[in-house]
Design a protein around this nucleic acid. Structure first.
Length: 327
DNA sequence: TTGTGTTTTATTGCCTCC
DNA sequence: GGAGGCAATAAAACACAA
């Protein structure tokens, strides 16, 4: 618990400045009497049962007698009016120039330092909320992609079994008819039919692939594998690419110009899904090797938790559309 | 009333920028 | 080197269920 005696010093802005003296043992963490740069810090006084307003008007702070009689107690919350004005000011601009800080402090009867601290804490709160929003958006986007992927996967399996079934029938036909007729034309015919049938089967899958790829143009350059014209849609790779696109947009909203940051952070969807990208030869169960869904969401959360952009607040496009509208 | 969780105010240390 | 920003953290104030 802090203890100490306060002495006020009317300087600079006109608002009273407090100096913290006779700081007792067990004071604030670090035990410093003054904040860096000679900035005075607020202190506390204990041992009096009388409640007094912690924040006072500048005029009151300038009256020496007041300091003797009205020493502030423990920290008090700002009044709703003070908070309202600060919020409005924050809406206009979330950074505080010295002139504005002084003016706000004068209007509110607060120390400039208090105004600066309030803005700092407010920016931190905004950032936390922004991260939550970004995560929610990413999660929703990811869930939608996962559902889409599941549908494509089912189509893929269905078409695969269709191809297998038709191929089998063709083989049977070749065996039965091939033995009966040694005619050269008869030997060629099944091959044509087979190709035709295969085309029919591949068409829907190819369409799905084309549609899918059209939606993830942005992430194409990250997909180095490609499906090589395969009839089997490489949905894992596509999904990863699209998730990367979703991450792109969200990350850009908070970390403008931060592409390289998250691409290097180890959560890269393409890298992560590399084990899940399969060739045609791997068969119908090829997708089982990529169980990346929960990890991706977790990676996104971990990424946002660990990659705070130091100047996110500076960028007007940094997801700040209505940034004051939360809460 | 009390215990507990959340929010708010404030401090500290480190970093970047000028 | 000073000023200011941020992350981490402490601690008071507050909210609320039991």
């Amino acid at each position: 618990m802090e203890s100490g005696r306060l002495i006020f010093n009317a300087t600079g802005s006109g608002a009273g400045q407090m100096l913290f003296l006779d700081c007792g043992a067990g004071g604030v963490p670090g035990g410093g009497l003054f904040h860096r740069g000679g900035r005075p810090m607020l202190g506390l006084e204990e041992g009096r049962g009388v409640k007094r307003p912690f924040f006072t008007s500048p005029d009151e702070l300038l009256e020496e007698e007041y300091y003797d009689e009205q020493l502030p107690e423990k920290k008090r919350r700002l009044t709703p009016e003070q908070v309202h004005l600060l919020e409005r000011s924050f809406e206009e601009e979330n950074k505080l120039e010295p002139e504005r800080k002084t003016e706000l402090a004068r209007k509110l009867g607060l120390q400039p330092r208090q105004v600066a601290v309030w803005f700092q804490n407010r920016r931190a709160r905004w950032k936390t909320k922004q991260l939550e929003r970004d995560f929610d958006r990413l999660k929703a986007s990811f869930d939608a992609l996962r559902a889409e992927h599941d549908v494509l996967l089912q189509d893929n399996h269905r078409l695969r079994s269709q191809v297998a079934s038709l191929t089998e029938k063709l083989q049977e036909k070749e065996e039965t008819e091939g033995g009966a007729s040694a005619d050269a034309d008869a030997a060629v015919l099944p091959v044509d039919v087979k190709a035709s049938l295969a085309d029919d089967v591949e068409e829907p899958a190819a369409e799905a692939e084309a549609a899918f790829e059209a939606q993830q143009v942005k992430s194409e350059d990250r997909l180095s594998t490609g499906s090589g014209g395969s009839a089997v849609v490489d949905t894992d790779a596509l999904l990863c690419g699209r998730f990367a696109t979703a991450v792109d947009s969200s990350v850009e909203s908070y970390f403008p110009g931060s592409e390289d940051h998250y691409h290097d952070c180890g959560m890269g969807p393409v890298n992560h899904c590399a084990g899940g990208i399969q060739s045609d030869d791997d068969g119908a169960g090829s997708d089982e090797g990529c169980s990346y869904y929960p990890e991706e969401a977790a990676a996104a959360a971990a990424f946002f938790a660990g990659h705070a952009h130091p100047h996110a607040d500076d960028d007007e496009d940094a997801g700040q559309i209505g940034w004051w509208m939360w809460n």
